[in-house]
Design a binder for these strands. Sequence first.
DNA 1: GAAATAAATGGAATTATTCTAATCTACTCC
DNA 2: GGAGTAGATTAGAATAATTCCATTTATTTC
Lengths: 147, 147
Amino acid sequence: MKTSLPEPERNRLKHALKSRNLRPTRQRTCVYGVILEKRDHPTADDIHLRVREKLPSISLATIYNCLDTLVECELVKQVHLDRAPTRFCPNRTPHAHFHCRDTGQVYDVSLDDKRLSAIEQFLPDGFTADTIELSFLGRGPETITVS
Amino acid sequence: MKTSLPEPERNRLKHALKSRNLRPTRQRTCVYGVILEKRDHPTADDIHLRVREKLPSISLATIYNCLDTLVECELVKQVHLDRAPTRFCPNRTPHAHFHCRDTGQVYDVSLDDKRLSAIEQFLPDGFTADTIELSFLGRGPETITVS
DNA sequence: GAAATAAATGGAATTATTCTAATCTACTCC
DNA sequence: GGAGTAGATTAGAATAATTCCATTTATTTC
Ligand SMILES: [Mn+2]
Ligand SMILES: [Mn+2]
Ligand SMILES: [Zn+2]
Ligand SMILES: [Zn+2]
């Protein structure tokens, strides 16, 4: 059983935290490791269950604290879909989300610069956005339709 | 003190409900009236406070029930921003939302067919979306920056 | 290596939403 | 036109999601 967080990501975490005077605690490292391990857009509660296998006494409040720190460090993004609990995503490239009605799965949809700037054009004069959230709700290709 | 819901909207509500075998109750009519009256993307709680002035004993659960019915009838849309409570919007034309970091205000950003279909192009083959949510977080024009 | 300071943690509290049992309504049948 | 009944509506109670803040732990300063 090795240190679950690979070296490059461990360094990225360390530097991002250091630049903000924050510490790479066991809790933060483990939460980040779990998010990178299975990129299925888990909720805080999902992450709690997974982290508990390594740190059995960690609380859900600490999971939220760690996640908020990772978001602050721009290592993790929040995904807000419907009235469901917030999900978390380690994909740092600009992207949208597709939520499948049938399976509940959440997919990343990549947004290159051309797409991003097309969206920015939608804003009226005087408005500037630093964050764009785009999400789709529908049906994915894996869905088997029974007649 | 007149009937707060104008005739065309009252009819739209009545027909949308009837086609689903639902009734235009006092609670539903009043919730819809309140949402149309001040289009500031209120939360369920905001709406509760406003409706209580007309129906003092209505519960927050009923507000949620009414809102869910109105969403079902496609008279109202839900808006999901950050980890904040869901907001509700009676603008039935396709549109995105802009959320101002400074004032907290939420603005509608119109999406014509050209913009909508541009966004739909982002989806990989095999994916079909029936709902698209697009939101911006940033600063609006009314913000006064103090040096 | 204490004291002072800053950061991190997690139990308790709050808030947002949903559940479900009780109530109400409109229709059917006498 | 009054039961009876199925379905719809309501709202109090329960649950689930998130945040607060007192305590603990780590780092820095002297
Ligand atoms: Mn939300
Ligand atoms: Mn919530
Ligand atoms: Zn993602
Ligand atoms: Zn709107």
